[in-house]
Amino acid sequence: MATLTAPQLETDRPTPTPIEKVSIIISKGSFESVYPGLIMANGARMEGIEANVFFTFFGMDAINTKRNASMKVATVGNPGLHLPTWLGALPGVSALVTRMFNREMEKLDIPPIPEFLELLSDSGARLFACKATVDMFHLTKKDFIPQLEDIITVGQFYEMAAGGEIIFT
């Protein structure tokens, strides 16, 4: 009978080239969907890696000044939370869970979303909004944080991302 052997690891592989640029797309509009992208972008800058963040669809709430201070954790349709759906749907539950997350984040010195965006911009990360979404939601540059550099098309995004890694969240 044929026996299966474990694949050999290539030990003489050349050292991989370090990442020099990342372009992160934030496409979802809940608290827990926005933070990972922001943390990844900040982490990139902290390593001296160039970072672009592109906000699209509901992810754009993160840069909308009327909405970004009050983003909530999705307590319905979020199996990772291990909350029964009926409980997650009760009034106030989403706000309560969000408050708990905020408290834990503060302990780790992770800033609230508006402050986080300032930190990112001061760190040299570039922030962009998606033109198609801006048009669809009838928004203008005035609806967004002052740190937003520009509203750009998908084509412009790819141009900007050239030569780097793209991360979709």
């Binding site: 900040n42 902290m46 010195d109 992770i110 800033p111 930190l119 001061d122 760190s123």
Partner: peptide, 8 residues
């Protein structure tokens, strides 16, 4: 060590 936020 402090975070970048605390440094700032």
């Amino acid at each position: 060590a402090p975070s970048i936020r605390t440094l700032g």
